[in-house]
């Protein structure tokens, strides 16, 4: 319980800036970027062929 308490941010405390842990962020950043590239490759094949028409035809009646 004590650890959790310490992690809580006192509110409001907007003046504190997050300290960047540079090496770790870069490493995970590279991995994330590679994953995103793979995902974007896949999306190129999945995206509606005529996106503009699809978006235009997507009209819904209002609901609740």
């Amino acid at each position: 319980m004590a650890e959790r308490t310490q992690k809580q941010k006192p509110a409001p405390s907007r003046t504190e800036e997050t300290v960047e842990a540079a090496p770790a962020v870069t490493e995970s950043g590279d991995k994330l970027k590679a994953e995103l590239d793979d995902l974007l490759d896949e999306i190129d094949g999945v995206l509606e062929t005529n996106a503009e028409d699809f978006v235009k035809s997507y009209v819904q009646k209002g609901g609740q």
Binding site: V59, G62, G63, Q64
Partner: peptide, 12 residues
């Protein structure tokens, strides 16, 4: 929840 044209429907 929306069609991007001002029409919304809910998830309650």
């Amino acid at each position: 929840n929306s069609d991007g044209k001002g029409n919304s429907y809910g998830c309650h």
